[in-house]
Design a binder for these strands. Structure first.
Length: 326
DNA sequence: CATCAGGGCCCTG
DNA sequence: CAGGGCCCTGAT
């Protein structure tokens, strides 16, 4: 087993997110299952981050309130980092967690909506977002494919345990993602032995492609949705389901909703139509229903989705347990 | 015990 | 452009 690298506090920055801001629902998504690269408790999130080739520990702390947001970002590294580096990391986090997102338009339209209104009230200030780079998200997306939650977690943990770097910082020991290309010496068979199944090929190809720096995430961010979609679909192992996740989580499109996977279909059917999983509402009908949320349809469903998962953290929901199979 | 579908995608015909 | 095959796992 690899020995953990000990990191030291090298920078600390204060960040003021846009108003309103809810720290916990932004930095902890109960449906993003724990995998050993992050840890959350109310008011604090620890995570690892591979940024510009460095393996880092990052700690986010809530130092404000919904209406007067303020937070601290502490950076832990093996050796000193420059101001430019620290600033670039903070700016990346602002992007990934949507800390500057203006939600006022969304709230204004839907604050009195029968379904969304109460949810908005509960989660006012929650941002969508995802901690991963495009490469990292693709690996996660691949292990999500055609697998139940439990199996996906098992696959991701196996990868992180074998190829991730253990980091020790601020009393936590968490694993950091490997560099794109790091799986070059790992054969497809080895990945199969880690029970990746046929996904092994996609993981290999993705790693090889990103290792050669054939994808410029920054550049793709600057492009329009259609162009982004086209390029993402060209990647081996990426189809409609994965692209739909990517466009929301990595590229922050709130208005795009064209795909519903089978388990989500069952959950939406219950949530929006009170239909049991044995008789789910058709995908077509669900998509049509989401049209009511207009330019915010994906964001709206995210709010309702997260509301459900938070509910699950303090309440047993039998029909949901049956669907997710953690 | 055997069989089968699943948070999809690729590839073949 | 429809559908078979794929890894593994848990449900039946």
């Amino acid at each position: 087993m690899k020995k953990a690298h000990t990191l030291h506090l090298v920078a600390r920055k204060v960040v003021v997110p846009s108003v309103p801001f809810d720290f916990d629902s932004t930095f902890h998504k109960p449906d993003h299952f724990t995998s050993g690269d992050n840890y959350w408790e109310p008011g604090i999130r620890w995570q690892t981050c591979l940024w510009r080739g460095k393996t880092l520990g990052v700690k986010f702390e809530n130092k404000g309130t919904r209406r007067k947001p303020k937070m601290a970002i502490s950076l832990y590294a093996e050796s000193k980092v420059g101001t430019t580096f620290a600033d670039s990391l903070v700016s990346e986090m602002r992007y990934r967690y949507n800390l500057d997102l203006d939600l006022r338009g969304f709230y204004k339209i839907f604050k009195d909506d029968k379904i969304l209104g109460p949810v908005i009230k509960r989660w006012k200030g929650m941002r969508p977002g995802h901690p991963s780079s495009l490469y990292e998200y693709l690996i996660i997306g691949i292990v999500l494919q055609n697998a139940t939650v439990r199996r996906s977690i098992q696959m991701f943990k196996a990868l992180l345990e074998h190829y991730g770097t253990p980091l020790k910082f601020d009393g936590k020991e968490l694993r950091c993602f490997w560099k794109p290309g790091a799986l070059g010496a790992v054969s497809e068979q080895i990945l199969r032995d880690l029970k990746m199944g046929y996904r092994a090929k996609s993981i290999k190809k993705t790693d090889e492609y990103f290792g050669k720096k054939l994808v410029d995430e920054e550049r793709i961010r600057g492009e329009g949705r259609e162009a982004q979609m086209e390029q993402l679909l060209e990647l081996y192992g990426v189809g409609p389901a994965t692209v739909w996740y990517l466009l929301f989580d990595v590229f922050h499109h709130w208005d795009f909703f064209n795909h519903v996977s089978p388990w989500e279909q069952k959950i939406y059917s219950k949530l929006f139509f009170n239909k049991n999983p044995e008789h789910p509402v058709s995908v077509k009908k669900l998509l049509k229903y989401f049209e009511r949320f207009g330019a915010y349809k994906q964001l709206a469903v995210h709010y309702i989705w997260e509301d459900l998962w938070w509910k699950r953290t303090h309440e047993h929901i039998p029909w949901l347990e049956k669907e997710i199979r953690v």
